[in-house]
Each structure stands twice: as structure tokens, then as C-alpha cells.
């Protein structure tokens, strides 16, 4: 089977499972969160796996999407679905503002992106902006609350995200991004406009997080700034991606499924034990299995797409 088709098959299977499983096991919130992390992990994957930039502050786009969506509903009176798109646009705008961060090299970028997300959080949550963002008092979207619709839209966003990663794995642009990740200077001398390609990947991953944040806001409908700018959202998305293996389609899917499952077994009641486990996993992976769990499959000749 050509790899494009096996990739498409994976996409269809994942989406079908997301639609069917809630009918069999009636916990829609669990599956919604699973999809949120599947999409966010792929968003991290697009940036880190294909350009080498690790966005510790990725949650900044998620929170911006949530607030963009909410303000579009509350201030512009948009219906929820266009409002979700507005959330995505808000995240892309933030991405454009922060694009100069891409001038920084690896570690500086990672930390600067974390600082940026915290800065956005403290602005949004600031009491003196209560008139605009409702400051620390949070948002209520009770008027448009519709969990089954928002669930379907989330399936759509996840589908879009997986398709984007599949495209990068199969296309010329994906090969070019990998070249940039391997060596930006060589890539430039090969004629690649390194800055433009990086910015595009950055904006694509911002768009994904913004859309996911928008649907998330719609789904939970009542939230505080700290809910949608929670650093542990970035951290979990990054850990899931690294655990599964970056630069592939299946790596992050695998990482989210295993670790999000583990999170729901022990992480909800005893988060510190979950944190200890994934902290240790990261340390061990970095030292002994830098390619993530997917590289174990690859070694056995299994295609991780």
C-alpha cells in the first residue's frame, strides 16, 4: 500500500474512533480532552519535529484562541463556529507578532516562547483590563454551550491537523523543513528561504493551537484565564510528542494515547506521581532513546509514517 494511502487510512481510523468511542463509553469529556492533546501534540510536532524549535509557551496560542473565540462570541456576537475560526486567526496574529523570536537559536527560543505565553497570560488576566477580557474573573459562554456540536467541530480540527502533518511527511515542503532543521545554513545555501519556511511552520502550529483553544472554550464554556493559559498544557503536549517521537505522524498519536491514558489512571487524583513519571521518562528518553517510542517500532521495521 503506498504510504500516502496508509497515512490517510490512519487519519480515517483515528477520526472514526473519536466519533464512535463516546457512544460505547459514555465519557465525552475524556475523549474531547484526548482529541485536544492529539491535536496540540501534532502542533508541537509540526514546529519541533520539522524545524527544531521547541515551543515551551505553546499554550499561549491555545489560550489566545480560547479568548479570541470567546470575545468573538461575546463582543462581536458571532455564531460559535466562525468564532472558533476567529480564535485561530487571533493565534496567528499573535504568532506574527512573536515571529521575531524565530531569530533566536534553540534554547533561547524555547525559553522566550515560555516568557511570551506568560506575558500574554498576565495581560489577559490583568484586573485593569476587566472591561475587555473580564480579567481574572473569567469567561462564560453559557449562551452558546452545545457539547455535541463542539465535539464534532473538534473532530474536524483534529482531522485538519493530522492531514497537515501527513502533508508535511509526504511533500517537498516537509523535506525542506527537515533540511532546515538538520542544518539551517546548508539549507540557505541550497537556496531555501529559511526565514519564510520557519515562519510558515510557526504560524501553522499557532493556527492549530488557536483553533483547538477556540473549540475548547466552546466545549467547557466557563473558564478562567489560568485554565486556558496553564503551562502544564504546553508541557503535557510536549512530553507526549517527545515520548512518542517527533517528525512522524504516528509518534505523537502513540505518545498521547499511552501517556494520556496513564494520566487518566493516576494523573487526575495524584498529579505529582504522574509528573514524576513523565519527568523520569523524559530524562531516560533523552539519555537512552532520543527518537522516542516510535523509533522502537521503526527499528522493528514498522512504518511510523
Amino acid at each position: 500500500m503506498p504510504r500516502v494511502w496508509s497515512g490517510a487510512a490512519v487519519l480515517v481510523v483515528v477520526l472514526a474512533l473519536c466519533l464512535v468511542l463516546p457512544q460505547l463509553y459514555a465519557n465525552q469529556f475524556l475523549f474531547f480532552d484526548l482529541m485536544v492533546y492529539l491535536a496540540l501534540a501534532q502542533g508541537v510536532n509540526i514546529l519541533y519535529g520539522f524545524t527544531g524549535y521547541l515551543p515551551f509557551g505553546y499554550v499561549g496560542f491555545f489560550g489566545t484562541g480560547a479568548y479570541g473565540m470567546s470575545l468573538a462570541v461575546l463582543k462581536l456576537h458571532l455564531p460559535p463556529v466562525p468564532a472558533v475560526l476567529a480564535g485561530g486567526v487571533a493565534a496567528v496574529v499573535l504568532g506574527l507578532v512573536l515571529a521575531p523570536l524565530l531569530r533566536l537559536s534553540g534554547a533561547y527560543f524555547a525559553i522566550a516562547s515560555l516568557a511570551a505565553s506568560q506575558a500574554v497570560y498576565y495581560v489577559v488576566a490583568n484586573p485593569s483590563l476587566t472591561g475587555v477580557t473580564r480579567g481574572p474573573y473569567g469567561i462564560s459562554l453559557a449562551r452558546v454551550y452545545h457539547p455535541s456540536q463542539s465535539y464534532l467541530v473538534m473532530v474536524g480540527v483534529l482531522g485538519l491537523t493530522l492531514a497537515a502533518v501527513l502533508y508535511l511527511r509526504r511533500s517537498r515542503r516537509g523535506m525542506v523543513l527537515q533540511a532546515i532543521r538538520d542544518d539551517p545554513q546548508s539549507a540557505a545555501m541550497a537556496g531555501v528561504n529559511v526565514v519564510r519556511e520557519r515562519v510558515l511552520a510557526w504560524l501553522a502550529s499557532a493556527l492549530i493551537a488557536g483553533l483547538v483553544g477556540g473549540v475548547f472554550a466552546w466545549q467547557i464554556s466557563v473558564f478562567y484565564p489560568a485554565t486556558v493559559f496553564d503551562l502544564s498544557t504546553s508541557i503535557m503536549a510536549i512530553v507526549f510528542t517527545l515520548f512518542g517521537g517527533t517528525g512522524t505522524l504516528l509518534g505523537p498519536v502513540l505518545g498521547v494515547t499511552v501517556l494520556f491514558g496513564l494520566y487518566n489512571v493516576i494523573g487526575v487524583s495524584e498529579p505529582q506521581y504522574f509528573q514524576l513519571i513523565y519527568g523520569a521518562l523524559i530524562v531516560l528518553l533523552v539519555l537512552f532513546l532520543p527518537g522516542g517510542a516510535a523509533s522502537l517500532l521503526k527499528r522493528r521495521g514498522i512504518d511510523v509514517l
Binding site: M175, Q178, D182, S186, A187, G191, G247
Partner: peptide
């Protein structure tokens, strides 16, 4: 480059393809 800087994760052929696709 003094220290060669190939695209390590791409194949030898893909290394040249990147340059070939961007040649003017």
C-alpha cells in the same frame, strides 16, 4: 563548509533534491 553540514536525516539523494528544487 569547513565542517561538512549535510541534512543528516535526509538521504544523500534528498540532500541534493533540496538544492535542485530551489535552483534558479
Amino acid at each position: 563548509f569547513q565542517v561538512p553540514k549535510p541534512f543528516r536525516s535526509l538521504t544523500v539523494r534528498q540532500n541534493l533534491e533540496v538544492a535542485w528544487r530551489h535552483r534558479r
